[in-house]
């Protein structure tokens, strides 16, 4: 029954700063449940973020929390994990933070296959600065800096992560809360770089400008267009038009993890 989130949240920090209807709180709840399921010792868990709405998440959680600079979460987290491989290191942040200004760190953390769990909340927009388009804003949509429609093509974060070498890549949405904690749990347990993309909503900066009548409209869009990977396999490209796949998109348990590789290198150096 009623879940005990409060034990994971720093006293006095709620209500949080996110706007009414923003899905980041749903993701935070999922993350807490996943950390509980994995029985993560919070003293030994670092939660690292960059800048933006989603990057405010670590401040609420009772753990070793590191709110860094714009785009740099994966790079700070790499330093933490390398220096103390025994720590659980989780990154959280948004689409702009992770794939635009932080894109280089993102792909290289994937390439190294370092044991981080990166929960990336994709709400298609820069929310904190007031709704400028991000690499994930769909082409043609309106943002404060695309008054005539977004001319840019779009990053598919999960595909980007798979292409860059992440060994666990999964996608879900803010409308699938049980799947959020299931996938984050799998990501935490996975030894290597795990990316969990959560499609999210930003009613304030994206929804209103793009004629969603309410946050409910946005949530319904997430619910109606999510297609589980297995179901998608039986669908035609026409049927999949405008849909997005959810579930585990890629999982490779063979590729060695970076810190373990470095440990092996260390032994070699010390025996030389």
């Amino acid at each position: 029954m009623a879940y005990d989130y409060e034990s994971s949240i720093r006293p006095g920090k709620l209500p949080h700063i996110w706007c009414p209807g923003c899905g980041h709180g749903i993701v935070m709840k999922g993350l807490i449940r996943a950390m509980d399921t994995c029985e993560l010792d919070r003293k030994n868990t670092a939660i690292v973020s960059g800048i933006g709405c989603a990057s405010r998440l670590p401040g609420y959680l009772d753990a070793c929390t590191l709110h860094t600079a714009h785009g740099r979460a994966a790079a700070f987290a790499t330093g933490v994990k390398m220096a103390k491989p025994g720590m659980n290191v989780i990154c959280v942040g948004g689409d702009g933070d992770g794939t635009a200004i932080g894109g280089n760190h993102f792909i290289h953390a994937c390439r190294r296959n370092i044991d981080l769990t990166y929960v990336i909340m994709n709400n298609y927009i820069y929310g904190m600065t007031g709704g400028q388009f991000s690499p994930c804003t769909p082409t043609g949509m309106l943002a404060s800096t695309t008054p005539y429609g977004n001319p840019d093509p779009v990053f598919d974060i999960s595909k980007l992560a798979i292409g860059a070498g992440a060994t666990f890549v999964a996608r879900t949405t803010a409308m699938h809360p049980r799947q959020i904690d299931k996938l984050i749990t799998q990501g935490i347990k996975h030894k290597g770089m795990a990316i969990i993309e959560v499609l999210d909503d930003c009613p304030t900066s994206y929804g209103r400008r793009n004629k969603f009548r309410s946050v409910i409209d946005m949530m319904k869009r997430l619910k109606d267009n999510a297609v589980p990977v297995k179901a998608a396999a039986k669908m035609t490209p026409e049927q999949l038009e405008g849909k997005f796949l959810t579930g585990v998109l890629y999982h490779d348990t063979e590729l060695p993890e970076y810190c373990e590789q470095y440990e092996a290198l260390t032994k070699k150096a010390q025996n030389a």
């Binding site: 860094t68 600079a69 790079a75 790499t78 220096a83 103390k84 290289h108």
Partner: peptide
């Protein structure tokens, strides 16, 4: 100790701060 060649100068500085926070 640990040596890492990062993807860029900014990442290098970030990794250094992250590592230092663990006490290194």
């Amino acid at each position: 100790g640990k040596f890492i060649q990062m993807e860029d100068e900014i990442g290098a500085m970030a990794s250094v701060i992250g590592a230092s926070l663990t006490g290194a």
